[in-house]
Write a protein that binds this DNA or RNA. Structure first.
Lengths: 354, 354
DNA sequence: CCTCGCGGTGTAACCGTTTACGGAATGGCG
DNA sequence: CGCCATTCCGTAAACGGTTACACCGCGAGG
C-alpha cells in the first residue's frame, strides 16, 4: 500500500493552492469552464439566466481570474511598460501620474522602471519585460536612440516620449516654440543683451530649447550669449556667478530650466543685484516652486501630465491597430509671465556705460 | 482528403507566434526542455559542457523566457505591487524612486497604481493584481485600514507605508518625534505663543505631527494654538490670514507641512510682516524648494526614498519567510535649521503689548 | 416530416514554463 | 565482476485560463 501511495502521482505536484480557479466556479455552478469564461468576458452567446447564475456563484466564491494564466493564454497582459530616465522630482511624478490615470481608465496596469542613467540598463530592463507588457512608453535620456531602438522587439507597440526617431511613434513637448516665445518676450521688454544658460548638450529637450533661443535671436539687434549648464541648480549658480564677474553684464538671463534659474537667482542675490530691476531672469518648466520664488519666476509652462496622458492614448491607438492614428504629437507650452522680468531701464543703461 | 485536412486540428489554433520558446531552444540544442530550464535557472544538476552549449544556443536565438508562462507555472511573478494615494509631487516621486531602485536591485519589477483618493478604488485595483504580484506595498490615504485590510488575500505579503495596523507589517516616518523636536526648538528660541497649523484630521501623518506638537507643549509655559489646515498651500495661506487678523498675534507659526508653510509665508508677506523678525515660521518635510524660499525655511527633513527602500527590504524579508524580520520599522527625521525662525525679540513683545 | 440554421453549451487542445519522477550512465567498492 | 549510489537528463503532468470545434435542441422553411 505504501507503494501504491507513492506511485500515485500527486495531482498538484509543485505547490499549494491560492484561490478559486475557473474550474472550481464551473463545477459549483454546474456548467463548463467555457461557459464561465464566456460569461466573465462577455464574449460568445450565453443565456441570460446562465450568465446571471454564473456571475452570482463567481461573486460568492470571490473568484478573481489569475492574471498570469489569462495572459499566457490570451497573449495580452493588459499592462504597459514605462521606461524612464533619471529625472528630477516634479517632472517624474507628473509623467507617471498622467500615464497612471490614463492607463487605469482604460483598464491597463503600468510596470514602471525609472532612474535609468544609461541605455544599456534600459535594454536589460526591456528584455525583462518580454511577455509582461503589451506596449511600451519610453523616455530615453540619450539623444541617440539607435541602440535602444534595435533592442525593441519589432512587433512591440512603442511610443517615445520626448525623443525623436523615424522608426517609432513619438510625442514631444514643444520646447522649441516655448524657448522662442520666451526669448521674443524678453526682447520685447527692450533687452538686447541676453544671456542664455543652455542645458546639457546630449539632452534633447535642451537642444530644442537652445534652437528656439537662437532662432528668436536671429536677425534682431540683440546680442546673444550662450553658457553651458547642466540643468542643475548648481550649474545655474556657477555659470551665473562667472557671468556676473564680467563687465559689462547682460540685462537679462534666460535659463533653459527652472532649476538653473534658481541657481542664477542665488548668484544674483549674492552679488546684491536685484531682480528684475538690475537683471531680468526667466526659466523654463514652471515647476511648482517657480511662483513661490522671490520674485515669482517668469517661465514657460509645460503640461507634463498631459504628455503622459497623450502618450497612453497614442500607444493604445497603436495597439488597437488604428494605423490611421498619428505618428507624431506635440504638447504645446505656454508663456507664464510673473515678476522676474522687467523692462530694460535707463539705470541699467547707465550702469553699463560707466 | 479535404475531410482529413479539416479534421486535423491546427496545432496552434488561436494566434501567431511571438518569439522563440523553450522548446525551440531545446530542439536546437538537442536536449530536453527540462535541461534548458534547469540551465537557465541554475537549479538541479547539469553538466558544465551541456550548460555552456545550451546557454550559447539560447543566446544565439535571443531567447527570453515568457514571463507569464513562468509565473503561471512557478507561482511567482517577481513583481511587487505598489498602491499609493493621491500624493503631491516630490513625495510621490521620492517614494517611487526608493522602491524602484531597491526592487530592481533585487530583481523585482514594480506594478504601480497611484493617485487613489478612496479606499474602494484601492480595493478594486487590489483585486486586479491577483496573480500579478508577489507582494504589496501599500500607502493608504485613510486612517481606517479595516476595509482595505479585509480585502487583502490572507497569504499575500504586505508592508504598509505610513499606516498602522495590528495585522500587517508596517514602516513609518517618525512624524511624532520630528514635530516634537521642532516645537522644542521653537520654544528654545524664547517663543511662548505658538500657532500650529495642523494637517487634515483623517491623515495619519497629520495626526502624529499634531501629537508631537502637543506633547512638546505640555507642561511648558507656552501658549499653544491649533488651526486646522489641509496640507495645501492654499489652506496655509487662508488659516494664516485669519490668524493674523486677530490681535495680539503669535510670534511663531509651525505648519505641519512645507506646503502650508509656503502659504503662510505669503500671507505674512501680504501683511507686511517680516520673517523671522516679526514672526518665526517653520515647516515639515523639507521639500526641495524649502531652502530656496526667502528666507530659507526651517523645517524637518524626512528621507522619503529611504522609506521606499526599507519598505522593499521588509517586504522581501517577509516573502522569503524570515519571520524573524521586524514587523515595524521607523524612519527617523532630522531638524533642519535655516533662517525662518529667530529668537523672540523685545520688539515683538512691545508690539503685542500695544 | 425532414432538413437546415442557429443559439447555447461542453470537451479538450493549447499558451510556455517548472518540476516530480524514473531511467540511463558512470564510478566506486566489495 | 556485480551492485549500489550518484549524477545527469528526458518525459510528461501540472499551472489556470481562452477558444476552436463538436454537439444538441428547437423553430422555421420547403
Amino acid at each position: 500500500m505504501a507503494v501504491t501511495a507513492k506511485r500515485k502521482r500527486s495531482l498538484a505536484p509543485h505547490r499549494s493552492k491560492v484561490g478559486a480557479t475557473i474550474r472550481d466556479v464551473a463545477k459549483r455552478a454546474g456548467v463548463s469552464v467555457a461557459t464561465v469564461s464566456r460569461t466573465l468576458n462577455g464574449v460568445g452567446p450565453v443565456r441570460a439566466i446562465t450568465s446571471r447564475h454564473v456571475l452570482k456563484i463567481a461573486q460568492a466564491m470571490r473568484y478573481v481570474p489569475h492574471a498570469a494564466a489569462r495572459s499566457l493564454s490570451s497573449r495580452r497582459s493588459h499592462t504597459l511598460g514605462v521606461l524612464l530616465p533619471e529625472l528630477h522630482g516634479e517632472f517624474f511624478s507628473e509623467v507617471i501620474r498622467g500615464i497612471d490615470v490614463a492607463a487605469r481608465q482604460r483598464g491597463y496596469h503600468i510596470l514602471v522602471s525609472g532612474s535609468h542613467s544609461d541605455t544599456d540598463e534600459m535594454i536589460a530592463v526591456l528584455a525583462a519585460m518580454r511577455g509582461r507588457v503589451d506596449g511600451l512608453l519610453i523616455m530615453s535620456p540619450d539623444l541617440d536612440l539607435g541602440p535602444l531602438s534595435r533592442n525593441i522587439p519589432p512587433a512591440m507597440p512603442v511610443v517615445l516620449l520626448n525623443s525623436t526617431t523615424r522608426s517609432h511613434r513619438a510625442i514631444q513637448i514643444d520646447n522649441y516654440s516655448g524657448a522662442r516665445e520666451m526669448t521674443r518676450y524678453i526682447l520685447s521688454l527692450g533687452h538686447t543683451w541676453l544671456a542664455f544658460i543652455a542645458g546639457p548638450e546630449r539632452n534633447i529637450d535642451a537642444a530644442e530649447r537652445t534652437r528656439g533661443f537662437r532662432d528668436a535671436m536671429r536677425g534682431t539687434a540683440g546680442r546673444p550669449m550662450e553658457l553651458e549648464g547642466e540643468f542643475t541648480e548648481e550649474s545655474g549658480y556657477r555659470t551665473t556667478s562667472e557671468l556676473l564677474s564680467r563687465v559689462p553684464r547682460p540685462t537679462a538671463i534666460f535659463a533653459a530650466n527652472d532649476a538653473m534659474a534658481i541657481g542664477a537667482l542665488h548668484a544674483l542675490r549674492e552679488k546684491k543685484l536685484r531682480v528684475p530691476e538690475d537683471v531680468s531672469l526667466a526659466g523654463f518648466d514652471d515647476i511648482p516652486l517657480a511662483r513661490f520664488l522671490t520674485p515669482p519666476l517668469t517661465t514657460v509652462r509645460v503640461d507634463i501630465a498631459e504628455l503622459g496622458r497623450r502618450a497612453v492614448d497614442m500607444l493604445l491607438a497603436q495597439m488597437e491597430g488604428s494605423s490611421a492614428s498619428a505618428h507624431k504629437d506635440v504638447i504645446p507650452t505656454t508663456l507664464i509671465v510673473r515678476d522676474s522680468c522687467g523692462v530694460k531701464s535707463a539705470s541699467q543703461l547707465d550702469r553699463r556705460m560707466k
